Amino acid sequence: MTAALVESVEKLIREVKALKQAAQKPPRDAWSPREVAHKLGLPYDTVLDRINDGTIGHILVGKHKLVPDAELQRFLAPGIQKAAS
């Protein structure tokens, strides 16, 4: 086997292990603003601005803001495009 092929196989093995591990974790109910920013590909400050202006709903846990998964789905729903038929 060539070095490139061995590297590709090892990368694939790591990805499969990561997927198996992720599949064993319980589903998330809420996300931190930083996680939301990462998931949406937006700057952290933009997500905080949308949380603070009420565009993205949140809950407070102590001093920490969390975005419920249902709220994240609601925020994303208007941007979902229907598949062309």
Rank of each mutant, 00 (worst) to 15 (best):
M1V: 10
M1H: 09
T2Q: 05
A3T: 11
A4G: 11
E7P: 00
V9R: 13
V9M: 13
V9C: 08
E10C: 10
E10K: 14
K11E: 15
L12H: 07
I13L: 14
R14P: 00
E15I: 12
V16W: 00
K17H: 09
L19V: 07
L19T: 07
K20N: 12
K20M: 09
A22P: 01
A22C: 01
A22E: 13
Q24V: 08
K25P: 01
K25I: 09
P26M: 06
P27S: 04
P27I: 03
R28D: 02
D29M: 09
D29Y: 08
D29R: 12
P33E: 04
E35R: 04
E35S: 08
E35N: 04
A37T: 07
H38F: 07
H38L: 10
H38S: 12
K39F: 09
K39M: 13
K39S: 10
K39I: 12
L40R: 02
G41V: 03
L42H: 06
P43M: 04
Y44R: 11
Y44E: 12
T46E: 08
V47H: 02
D49M: 12
D49A: 14
R50G: 00
I51W: 06
N52T: 05
D53F: 08
G54R: 06
T55A: 15
T55P: 06
T55W: 08
I56V: 12
I56E: 01
I56H: 03
I56A: 02
G57S: 14
G57P: 00
G57Y: 05
H58I: 01
H58M: 07
I59E: 11
L60S: 10
L60K: 15
V61E: 13
V61K: 12
G62D: 06
K63M: 08
K63T: 13
H64T: 15
H64N: 12
H64D: 13
L66F: 15
P68E: 03
P68A: 03
D69E: 14
A70T: 01
E71T: 14
E71R: 10
E71Y: 07
E71D: 13
Q73C: 04
L76K: 14
L76A: 13
L76T: 09
A77T: 11
P78I: 11
G79Q: 13
G79P: 01
G79C: 07
K82C: 00
K82P: 01
A83V: 14
A83D: 10
A84W: 11
S85T: 09
